[in-house]
Computed example of a mutant assay.
Amino acid sequence: MRNIMTNDHKNWFHQRYCAVVLLLLVSFSVSGCSLYVMAGKMFFGDPLITCEFTKQTKIDLIEDQKKVLVVCSTPESIRSDYPSLNYDLLEQVTYRLRRENIKVMDTGEVATWLDDNGGVWNDVDELAENFDVDYIIHVDIDEFDYREPNSPNLLRGKAFGHISAYEVNTVDEIKRALEIFDVEYTSEFPSHMPVSIEQESATVFRKKYLDRIADQIGRFFYNYHAGDPI
């Protein structure tokens, strides 16, 4: 004997279905946005975030397979305290871009050229002339420290600067670099409270903080999933 669903039964199931959906929505709104994120991942997967460079320029460094040069600079006041900071950032940012299949100039070549020129450069066009690349990324850190002011036993990373990118073109047989991207970069970690040196040594914390800075800078130039750790 066949079961025949009447219109009344259909209406009853429809009402129950709507009630369940409404209950879930209310639960999400009460419990916070994390449940929305979990639900979104469940049905649609971890969303891919378009990087800021591509948003502003419509250029995808991975798909377009453009070659990139990365340079880092800091003022003398920072270099005196952290003489290896420029090279450490250069190496770590380059590693992250290369990991995402962006073609990046070898850090050894960049470091050698900088050493031969006194460790500094004054004009981005000079870089364009001396390196065969399509884009130049300039990481300019104006402020950097990982020690809490007036608290020698506490650690908290702070950094501020600008991240710029230039497109290299040849004009009248001379290479020129035109700025196409510029964003302000600011960082504080951890934001809630500093770390005691009894919990973590200054050397370990500094390495961890530099890795974090490199991750944040890298994400300006390649897409990433919303749930990726940083």
Results as ranks from 00 to 15, higher is better:
170 T>E: 15
168 V>H: 08
139 V>G: 03
138 H>F: 07
170 T>N: 14
147 R>Q: 12
146 Y>S: 04
164 S>K: 15
149 P>Y: 05
149 P>N: 03
171 V>W: 03
151 S>E: 12
159 A>E: 04
162 H>M: 10
155 L>M: 14
148 E>S: 05
147 R>G: 02
137 I>P: 00
144 F>M: 06
149 P>L: 01
159 A>F: 01
152 P>F: 13
162 H>F: 09
152 P>M: 14
161 G>W: 00
153 N>E: 09
154 L>P: 00
173 E>C: 11
154 L>K: 15
156 R>S: 06
155 L>Y: 11
139 V>D: 03
144 F>C: 04
143 E>L: 02
154 L>T: 08
145 D>A: 12
141 I>P: 05
141 I>Y: 10
169 N>G: 03
148 E>P: 00
159 A>Q: 05
167 E>C: 15
163 I>K: 08
169 N>L: 05
151 S>F: 05
162 H>T: 12
169 N>E: 10
166 Y>M: 09
163 I>G: 08
148 E>I: 01
165 A>G: 11
161 G>N: 07
163 I>T: 08
147 R>T: 06
143 E>A: 04
152 P>I: 13
170 T>A: 15
137 I>Q: 03
160 F>E: 10
145 D>P: 00
150 N>Q: 05
148 E>R: 11
138 H>E: 11
138 H>R: 10
149 P>A: 01
140 D>P: 01
